[in-house]
Amino acid sequence: MASTVSDEHNKEEYSFIYGDEAVSYEVLRKPIKQGKKRSITIKVQPNCDVTVSTPEDAELEDIHQAVMKRAKWIYDALKEFRGHLEYVQPKHYVSGEMQFYLGRRYVLKVVEDADALPAVKMTRGKLLVTLTRFNDDKTAMVKALVRNWYKVRAQRIFHERLSELLPQATWVDGIPSFRVLPMTKQWGSCSAKGNLMFNPHLIKAPKECIDYVILHELCHIAEHNHSEKFWRWLTSVMPNWKEVKARLDGMAELYLNE
């Protein structure tokens, strides 16, 4: 086992060898408040980033030893998360594919029923899509039905969460309007006039992640850029936003995949 270091742009990055693989990790040094326990914390994010939080004066040897003690755990966690990412493939909208809703996985099931109208509903861990008949447009029809189902659900859930969270955003006057519109690289946005826009794919994420995006955009009504003041606003209404953001970012490829 070995360790290497790269201090490019003041970013502390190290690596260790486990088996036949070099595993990289980033060290985040933080000041320790009086009375707080000095400890080294290791996290493996869903996007396969490994971060090590340490006291700002921690010795490199102590950091490396702490990492090596948990080397197998880190490797196993990376293996699990990589397994999740392997499933990110273009969808064909056929029975057996995986869909997400509010952080839970559902198996897509497509059925034909000549006596029924085209519809989508959740039932017993499945997302059931019913078509009147199968034809050459089957894939396109299933995709359109599923996409519309997500949009309708997103409108309702986002409205509910916005109403629930607004009392925390004391700087917001009235109820801001919002639209649900697909975006390729953003979960949400806020216009200069305070109008909000949310990505319908966000409905696939857990409610805590939805709340993070809504609160993030509400904070932009008070502060339009990502200034230090903005992050203070966000921390005041969601102290654990960094962990929630990492969770959402780690699953982004799966949620945005269609």
Score class of each variant (00 low, 15 high):
Asn240Ile: 04
Ile40Leu: 11
Cys48Glu: 07
Pro176Trp: 08
Lys204Leu: 08
Lys143Leu: 00
Val50Glu: 05
Asp211Arg: 11
Lys72His: 12
Lys143Ile: 00
Gly250Pro: 08
Ala252Asn: 14
Gly35Phe: 01
Arg232Met: 10
Leu102Pro: 11
Glu228Asn: 09
Val213Asn: 05
Pro31Val: 02
Tyr255Pro: 10
Arg38Glu: 15
Ala205Lys: 04
Lys185Leu: 09
Ile42Glu: 08
Thr123Lys: 13
Thr235Lys: 13
Val27Phe: 11
Pro90Thr: 05
His201Lys: 11
Gly125Phe: 06
Ser163Pro: 03
Met141Leu: 15
Leu256His: 14
Thr54Tyr: 05
Pro176Asp: 08
Asn47Glu: 14
Asp49Ile: 12
Thr123Val: 10
Ser163Gln: 15
Ala252Tyr: 12
Lys138His: 04
Leu256Arg: 14
Tyr150Thr: 00
Asp76Gly: 06
Gly83Val: 09
Val88Met: 06
Asn225Ile: 03
Arg147Thr: 15
Gly125Arg: 03
Glu80Met: 14
Val67Trp: 11
Ser24Ala: 13
Thr41Trp: 11
Leu248Asn: 06
Val111Thr: 14
Gln34Lys: 15
Arg156Ala: 13
Asp173Thr: 13
Tyr212Trp: 04
Arg70Met: 10
Arg104Met: 13
Phe16Ala: 05
Phe230Ser: 02
Leu60Pro: 06
Asp211Trp: 14
Ser15Ile: 03
Ser24Asp: 12
Val88Phe: 04
Pro90Gly: 07
Pro31Tyr: 01
Lys229His: 15
